[in-house]
Simulated scan of single mutants.
Amino acid sequence: MAIYTKGGDKGNTSLFDGKRVPKNSLRVETYGTFDELNANVSLADKFCLDPENRKILQRIEYRMFFLQGEIATEEPEKFRQQSTIITDEDVHYLESIIDKYTAELPKVTSFILPGSSCAGAQLHVCRTVCRRAERQFVSFMAENEVRPELERYVNRLSDFFYIMARSEDHVAENQKIINMVVDRYKKAMEES
């Protein structure tokens, strides 16, 4: 079976609830940018050194499907009847990760470059794509009714990606120090 339908050949696409809209509509641009973000999150999770961070990011990847699905529905009630939705529990989960990592990581006293590790750099890409998606989401909210839980969730995401990037950079820096110590030890053992 072909994955193409030819339904979009004239510049339209179907939403979750079956309604056809132009591919360049604000709704499609908004959920499309969150889709781009989710692909970047998937890449970031492959770079992560910390297995717990990978699990956290994979959880976020699944939640992103629900976020996109609700935006991709002109009649949100239809989506809510057929799918899981973002709730305040999801908002609190992001906040708990942000708070935990902020308390555990060294304090930031100056501007930081966007990522000193592959995972950290990719998570900063996630942060910047998220900020673009958030700007589009604000425009989308000006024209559409949006649940406050969805609004809060979107507002927490870029802070979440920032702290995850810091976490992975910290893990990578610690691993680099461990590797240096092990290398020096091995060299000293070979020389003795």
Rank of each mutant, 00 (worst) to 15 (best):
M1W: 13
A2L: 15
I3Q: 11
Y4G: 07
T5M: 10
T5K: 11
G7Q: 14
K10H: 15
G11T: 03
S14P: 00
S14L: 12
L15M: 14
L15P: 04
F16K: 06
G18Q: 12
V21D: 11
S25I: 07
V28M: 06
Y31F: 06
G32D: 02
T33A: 03
L37V: 12
N38F: 13
N40F: 15
V41S: 08
S42E: 07
S42M: 11
K46V: 09
C48S: 08
P51S: 15
N53M: 13
R59V: 00
R63P: 00
M64E: 10
F65I: 13
F66K: 13
F66T: 05
L67V: 02
L67F: 02
Q68H: 01
I71T: 06
A72W: 05
A72E: 06
E74T: 11
E77R: 15
E77L: 13
K78A: 00
Q81L: 12
Q82E: 13
T84R: 15
I85M: 01
I86L: 04
I86V: 10
D90Y: 04
Y93A: 04
Y93L: 08
S96R: 10
I97R: 04
T102F: 00
A103Y: 04
V108A: 10
V108L: 10
T109E: 14
T109M: 13
P114D: 07
P114L: 01
S116M: 02
C118V: 00
A119I: 07
G120P: 01
A121C: 09
L123G: 04
L123Y: 03
H124P: 02
T128D: 09
T128S: 11
C130E: 09
R131G: 09
R132Q: 13
A133F: 03
E134K: 10
R135K: 06
F140G: 07
F140H: 09
E143K: 14
N144H: 14
E145H: 11
R147P: 00
P148Y: 09
P148E: 13
L150T: 14
L150S: 02
E151K: 14
E151P: 00
Y153Q: 06
F160R: 03
F160T: 03
F161Q: 01
R166L: 09
S167M: 05
E168C: 03
E168G: 01
H170E: 09
V171W: 04
A172E: 12
Q175P: 00
I178M: 12
I178E: 15
N179A: 12
V181P: 00
K186T: 11
E190Q: 12
E191R: 08
S192Y: 12
